[in-house]
Nucleic acid binder design. Structure first.
Length: 469
RNA sequence: GGUGAGGUGGCAGAGUGGUUGAACGCGCCGGACUUGAAAUCCGGUAGGCGGCUUGUCCGUCUCGGGGGUUCGAAUCCCCCCCUCACCGCCA
């Protein structure tokens, strides 16, 4: 959520931001509704002040009179009752006026929050303006020694590469037919070494962040309430992407949603909390199963392990002080962790600066990391697939957008009881998502004999083995 | 799933219709005492929203959440959420 006060001061900034992201939102109407709401509240508060003052003056008198009414009858009682009535008249009148104003405010509130929840965080000034993901800008590349993505795979390695689909089939790493039988389209079963590799990757990634970089490992719910989805900024815009458990339809008190990323759980941890500044930054990592409906992606990447409804992901999240420089520094650092991880696994990758159109409502800035996948890209009969980069990671910088929605704050100024409460900044980045990451891993490390070499750091997690197949 | 008990400030815990945004205690902050610390004493210590005269300012709301009764609600009524205990079932 953006700061309504800032929007009041500079609506144009938010209008431009929404436009750059290609998100339609009626900011003029929001500004008008907000002004009306404040007018009503000021008026209501004024009347309530009268009410309270009157209650203090008149209330005790009424109490006394009511007390003296006991045991009185006839004429005497009647005159006391009249007195009470007279004293109550003004407060009753005020009450009606207040109720009328408050009713109007209550009518306005859902309209305001409806729009407010849709106002995206404007992209930072240094984010390139673009119309679609095609306008993303490459920042850097890294290649293991001897690898050059501009040359065909077989020219470098001396054999035609298999796609991950072929590798998975030949090495019996996954069973798509039975997966689909069980779970429908985009389902799969990892089998044998496929499952072993999947687990090895996740465990390596977790250990890398915990032992290597001081992140605190957490388990988090993947079945969460609406508040967590709205708070983290996935709802309302991304409602179509999440599976919805309609418990209310069977008599339950509330519905649940399956999370599409561990970010929801990790960020939700400190919902409605005020943290001590001294306890920041918080560095959390989780591994969780992620569920995505992939609505609107029909027909896209239908085969294989690239686009699936259920996968597992190691995710990193940082909560830090509300300081732009600090936030930016963490973004770089969190990307750096992933670079180090990818290098340790000898996977070629590139960093992409996402343009404004590719950002999504909650990001001020986003950097994608794409891993080289030899099995993707144009196919030629002679040399096989040309290879292409495919997205495997995404690092977001959100300022206080998420924490404002989640109401996650800290007390500034160090010492307890002092300083303002301010919303934290939050950041998140993939550490490793599998099975998707198995694609670059299998395809890059395949050998001419059809086996796949296991990169050194994964071997301890694979029973010391050096290859699959 | 059944039965019962509860949800009050950072924590613990009073308060069952009238200056109670909230006692007492602990914690924390400031001060005094002390060579320093401890102990002791004094004072202070929630958040949201709005306003303008932007102030050590004013108003308002908040005792799990929402609604209601009342001149007045932490306190009474209704709905929801959550926690705990025991029983049943169960990975």
């Amino acid at each position: 959520m953006i700061d309504l006060k800032k929007l009041r001061e500079n609506p144009a900034h938010f209008q431009l931001g929404a436009k750059a992201k290609g998100i339609p939102v009626d900011i003029e109407r929001l500004v008008a509704l907000d002004a009306e709401r404040r007018r009503l509240q000021t008026e209501s508060d004024r009347l309530k002040a009268d009410q309270n003052r009157l209650a203090k003056e008149v209330g005790p008198q009424i109490g006394k009179l009511k007390g003296s009414l006991k045991g009185k009858h006839g004429q005497e009682a009647r005159s006391i009752e009249l007195e009470i009535e007279a004293l109550s008249a003004k407060p009753t009148q005020l009450k009606a006026a207040v109720q009328e104003l408050d009713a109007k405010i209550q009518e306005l509130d859902p309209k305001i929050s409806e729009i407010l929840l849709h106002v995206p965080l404007p992209p930072d000034g240094d984010v390139p303006v673009g119309a679609s993901a095609d306008d993303n800008v490459e920042i850097s590349r890294w290649n293991p020694t001897g690898f050059d993505p501009s040359k065909p795979f077989h020219a470098q390695r001396g054999f035609r590469p298999k796609t991950h689909l072929e590798l998975v089939r030949d090495l019996r790493l996954a069973d798509f037919e039975r997966g689909v039988k069980l779970g429908g389209a985009r389902s799969y079963i990892l089998t044998g070494d496929g499952m072993a590799l999947h687990l090895a990757l996740l465990r390596y990634a977790i250990d890398f962040m915990v032992s290597g970089n001081g992140f605190l490992p957490m388990s988090v719910p993947v079945l969460v309430r609406e508040e967590a989805m709205v708070g983290t900024g996935f709802f309302p815009a991304g409602r179509e992407q999440a599976y919805h458990i309609e418990e209310t339809k069977r008599g339950g008190g509330y519905d649940m949603h399956l999370t599409g990323t561990g970010e929801v759980g990790l960020m939700g941890i400190h919902m409605d909390e005020i943290l001590d500044e001294a306890d920041l930054p918080r560095k959390y990592v989780t591994v969780s199963t992620c569920f995505r409906r992939e609505a609107g992606a029909a027909g896209k990447d239908t085969a294989g392990l690239y686009r699936i409804h259920q996968f597992d992901k190691v995710e990193q999240v940082v909560l830090c002080r509300a300081d732009e420089a600090e936030s930016r520094a963490w973004h770089k650092r969190m990307i750096g962790y992933v670079e180090e991880l990818l290098r340790s696994l000898s996977i070629p990758y590139r960093l992409l600066q996402c343009c404004t159109a590719d950002l999504g409502p909650k990001n001020a800035d986003m950097v994608d990391i794409e891993s080289w996948m030899p099995g993707r890209g144009d196919f030629s009969a002679g040399t096989g697939p040309a290879g292409a980069y495919g997205e495997t990671h995404s690092a977001s910088r959100l300022y206080d957008f998420q924490c404002r929605r989640l109401n996650t704050r800290y007390r500034a100024g160090g010492a307890a009881g002092k300083g303002d409460t301010v919303f934290c900044h939050s950041l998140n980045n993939t550490v490793l998502a599998s099975p998707r990451f198995m694609i670059p891993l299998l395809e890059n490390h395949q050998q001419a004999d059809g086996t796949v070499a296991i990169p050194e750091p994964l071997r301890p997690y694979m029973g010391g083995r050096s290859k699959i197949g």
